[in-house]
C-alpha cells in the first residue's frame, strides 16, 4: 500500500451515470489482487472531505506504463465531482488496500455472481481466472440493459445475463441464473465455488444459497469508510457469533472480501 499521484487517462460515461475511469499509476503502486480497492481523494479543496473507496476493475501493464481501471456510478456529491474530472487531471490515491478474493488451490469452477456495479471486481477476477486457465462462469444481473456494462470483456468463460426489466438476457434475478446454472451443470461444493459482489440484498441471498449447499462463497462488501487503512475503526462488518472474535473486523483491512457465510447479514445496515 502506498499513497501515489495518478493521472486520468480516460473518464468516460458508458451508460447514463455509469463511468469507466482509467488511471495511470506510478511504479510505487504495487500489483493489486482482484477484490482489492483504492481510496481516492476526489478533490483537494475539502469538498468532499473524505476519500472514497473504489474496487479495481483491472490492472494493466504495458511496457513501463501501469494503469488501473474503475467502474463507478454517480450516486452523490463525491462521485459527481469525479465524473467532471477531465483527462490529464491528477488524483491522489492510497492503495491497493484490503484483502481480495482467494481462489481455491484445488481446481474448481468459479461461479461469478455480479449485481449492477458490483461487476467491477469480478471482471478483474475473471481476467485472473482466464490467465490461470481456471474454468469459470460469469452471471451478471442488473436493473436494465443500461446497467449492464463491461461484460464484453468476459472471454474464456460462459456468460449469462439477466435484467429486472427483461431488456437483455433472462427476465429476472441473477439469483435464478445461479440456481439454474448450479442444477443444470451439476456443480457440487467439491467442484465449484462462488464469488459475488453487488447490492447487499443480493449478497445475502447468494450467501444463503451457498450456506444451504455447503459451498465456499466469498462476497465483496461496501460501506462508508473514513481512513481506509484500519486506523479509525469506522467500517465494521458484523460477523456471525461463531466467527466473531472481539466484535467487528474493519472492512478496509480484513475485507472488503469476506467468507459470505460468516457475515451476519441481519446486522448489516
Amino acid at each position: 500500500m502506498n499513497q501515489v499521484d495518478c493521472t486520468i487517462i480516460e473518464n468516460r460515461e458508458l451508460t447514463r451515470g455509469n463511468f469507466l475511469l482509467t488511471l495511470r499509476v506510478p511504479r510505487q503502486f504495487s500489483k493489486p489482487q482482484p477484490g482489492q480497492f483504492v481510496h481516492l481523494r476526489l478533490s483537494t479543496d475539502g469538498e468532499p472531505l473524505l476519500r472514497r473507496p473504489y474496487s479495481l476493475e483491472g490492472f494493466f501493464e504495458r511496457g513501463r506504463i501501469r494503469a488501473i481501471r474503475i467502474y463507478y456510478s454517480v450516486v452523490g456529491r463525491g462521485s459527481r465531482i469525479l465524473s467532471m474530472h477531465p483527462k490529464g487531471r491528477e488524483l491522489d490515491l492510497i492503495g491497493p488496500l484490503g484483502v481480495g478474493f482467494q481462489i481455491s488451490r484445488k481446481k474448481k469452477t468459479s461461479l461469478l455472481v455480479a449485481g449492477g456495479r458490483g461487476v467491477a471486481p469480478l471482471l478483474f477476477l475473471a481476467r485472473r481466472l482466464r490467465e490461470r486457465k481456471r474454468p469459470h462462469v460469469f452471471l451478471f444481473g442488473a436493473k436494465s440493459k443500461y446497467e449492464l456494462y463491461g461484460y464484453r470483456d468476459v472471454r474464456g468463460g460462459r456468460l449469462h445475463l439477466a435484467t429486472d426489466d427483461g431488456s437483455v438476457g433472462y427476465h429476472g434475478s441473477v439469483l435464478d441464473l445461479l440456481q439454474r446454472e448450479w442444477e443444470e451443470a451439476g456443480h457440487t461444493p467439491d467442484t465449484a465455488e462462488i464469488f459475488t459482489c453487488g447490492p447487499h440484498g443480493l449478497l445475502h441471498a447468494v450467501a444463503d444459497f451457498a450456506r444451504d449447499r455447503g459451498v465456499r462463497c466469498e462476497a465483496s462488501l461496501e460501506g462508508p469508510m473514513a481512513c481506509g487503512v484500519g486506523a479509525c475503526r469506522g467500517c465494521p462488518i458484523p460477523l456471525r457469533p461463531e466467527h466473531d472474535g472481539a466484535g467487528y473486523p474493519a472492512m478496509c483491512v480484513e475485507g472488503p472480501v469476506y467468507d459470505a457465510t460468516a457475515v451476519d447479514w441481519e446486522r448489516l445496515p
Binding site: L49, A226, R233, G234, C235, P236, G247
Partner: peptide, 25 residues
Amino acid sequence: RPRAGNPPPRVVETAAGMLNSIGIE
C-alpha cells in the same frame, strides 16, 4: 476492558465534516 465498539454505520460525511460513533473500539 476491550470494547467491540458500536453497531454500524459508524461514520457519515456531512457538510464540511463527518459524524462518527465508533464507540472506542
